[in-house]
Design a protein around this nucleic acid. Structure first.
Lengths: 350, 350
DNA sequence: TCCTTAATAGACACCGGTGTCAAAAACAAG
DNA sequence: CTTGTTTTTGACACCGGTGTCTATTAAGGA
């Protein structure tokens, strides 16, 4: 069976083959594949026919060398939430699926001193067209400056509007959290616990602000004893739950700044015979798979992360991507989050 | 004529700059960066000094063009379980962190007819060193043949040993499932339900075989009424749970072929006042985050997916990677899964 | 000391595209 | 039919490395 051997020996056609067969110069072929306007319709057709016949695909490495730029976009992240990263990544992949672009993933270590240097070397090596910055590193101005100085476009994803127009995608987390918490208040909850996200995360801050807004609007206060510090991990959720639920006058509802911590709170509640939502309402944030896997299913806020990925990709490299109907205006930078009601919320029992 | 300061600001140093400054030919510099043995220690040192001084980093695009191969490995997957993909991906990234390699992610559409053609174009364009195939597409022989014919190395990940030595990583799922189920039997369970994974998945098959092994060893039968078909999604878990738990003589334990379906079963149990593990023991598979997020926490089988990622990367491109102590032998292809006991299993109530 | 052989270094073409700029062709006007 | 102007096209250098083959140097033997 000669098929395999043949294939491996057969070289892919190059621009020279096309040029020779079409009887034009390679530069002319180059113009055709780059859709240059400086070419007559007649030659364009002629060359295109040969390209199709030969199945010629331009070599990205050679283009990258000549362009001094790779047809790549990189995803930089240091995100504690794997699911978020993957969803976002899938959104990006959706967007670039039918383009010439490829996606490179690069986790960075936000803590370390040489983070910036690492990223610089990486970007200098890969020379991508652009970079996508996921929170929390999207808030790092050194990184965006680095991108600028290397001529790498970037788009930052954030939970609040960053002052960097045209290069930033955010959602209205604060507003939606406020709405979700107002719902608790409307149901009659007066003592509402709050599990805070980690310090220094913009997302955590935004969610807390939304919570405060709701309380303030209802004229409620936020006593320290009802606030617990968390770190977005489940264990900090159980710790928070243990403290909050052992209070003498325990809260009738708890808002946790993400689903994982909400799951922790719920474990403590169920483990202590406190039924959810009858005796305790819980709201999370992220709409991660966890939200539907736990019982009762968690009311939460859905952050449109996959859509953000697609949108961010379009914002970053709209000139390389086929236009997509549902992304009318890649400049439009806010994608709304949504409160999703499931079974973990009810009116407080008197 | 640009001054040196100018140039260093504008442009990264190239092999030519190094050659000029070191007073050697570019080919000699090339030998140094490629660690060729055909060079004297003296010149090597001299050149290395200049490389460090200039901070020269070889341009990967140029190398790729000359080598006709990109310093890239691609991850091909069509996996319904996002968490698995991400974990694996992180394992790969761990492994290539300090190397010259980068990771390209490529989801493929197993169903579609042009899948193979898509992958071919992708590989021909990107010219990666190698490809990593996650299940279920790792079982597709057309794909591996394609890789062969394009000179792309590959490593396939599977839940059972595939007959492709040196290019395959697997775990001992069957054995571990058998052990987990034997534990149920030893606790006294006699009626054990089974939620099957989707048809055509090797992983699903392996888990089922392990289950059968355990039952057979104990002389138990596997009545049809205790078997439910699932698809690894939570809804199929709840459906299975609804059917199995409404049986007149309902099972005292259920093994679900993955955690998500186990979570579905658990939701049905808790929703119907069947307490876990007192009245129903549940075991899952994957040790996904879900397993610890639900309550009670799920006993499950941990599949060492992240380690497999690192291991697979080493198997694929050990010659590009710095040796790592814990991966003594990249040829060794089996990474053991482990049964993890949490709170969802207990002896059946008489 | 001279010749042979092995080790090292360099010249040069090449990988497959793109940018620049000048030449050729097409068109318009005189 | 020229001449001037605008399109189109092509020649050629270049992007930054590597492979091949030859020239040079160093080492070893007679």
């Amino acid at each position: 069976m000669p098929t395999r051997a043949n294939r491996s020996k057969t070289k892919q056609p190059t621009i020279n083959d096309v040029a020779a067969l079409a009887g034009v110069s390679k530069k002319t072929v180059s113009r055709v594949i780059n859709e240059s306007p400086l070419i007559s319709e007649k030659t364009r057709e002629k060359v295109k026919k040969v390209i199709d016949k030969l199945g010629f695909v331009p070599n990205p490495q050679a283009r990258a060398l000549a362009f001094r730029r790779n047809f790549l976009i990189v995803l930089l992240h240091d995100n504690p939430n794997a699911q978020t990263v993957l969803n976002f990544q899938n959104g990006v992949l959706d967007a670039i699926k039918d383009s010439d672009l490829a996606l490179l993933v690069r986790p960075v270590n936000r803590g370390s001193d040489d983070m910036l240097e690492n990223v610089r070397v990486f970007l200098e090596k890969q020379r991508p067209i652009g970079a996508l910055l996921l929170p929390p590193i999207s808030e790092n101005d050194d990184l965006t400056e680095l991108c600028q100085s290397l001529g790498v476009r970037y788009v930052r994803i954030g939970s609040a509007t960053l002052d960097d127009p045209g290069r930033c995608i955010s959602s209205n987390d604060r507003e939606v959290v406020e709405k979700a918490c107002r719902e608790l208040i409307d149901l009659g909850h007066r003592r509402i616990g709050f599990v805070r996200g980690p310090q220094g995360f913009r997302s955590a801050k935004e969610r807390e602000l939304g919570f405060q807004d709701a309380l303030a609007a209802a004229g409620l206060t936020m006593p320290d004893e009802l606030i617990a510090q968390g770190n977005y991990r489940i264990d900090s959720g159980t710790e928070a739950g243990e403290r909050l639920l052992s209070l003498k006058d325990r809260p009738t509802a708890i808002f946790a700044s993400n689903d994982e911590m909400a799951a922790g709170v719920m474990q403590v509640a169920l483990g202590n015979g406190i039924s959810v939502p009858e005796q305790l309402s819980i709201i999370g944030f992220d709409d991660s798979p966890t939200a539907t896997h736990i019982w009762p299913r968690l009311s939460t806020v859905r952050w449109p992360i996959r859509e953000m990925g697609a949108h961010a990709a379009h914002m970053l490299v709209s000139d390389f991507l086929p236009p997509v109907p549902d992304i009318k205006d890649p400049e439009y930078a806010m994608l709304p989050s949504k409160f999703i009601e499931r079974q973990s919320v009810a009116a407080p029992k008197k």
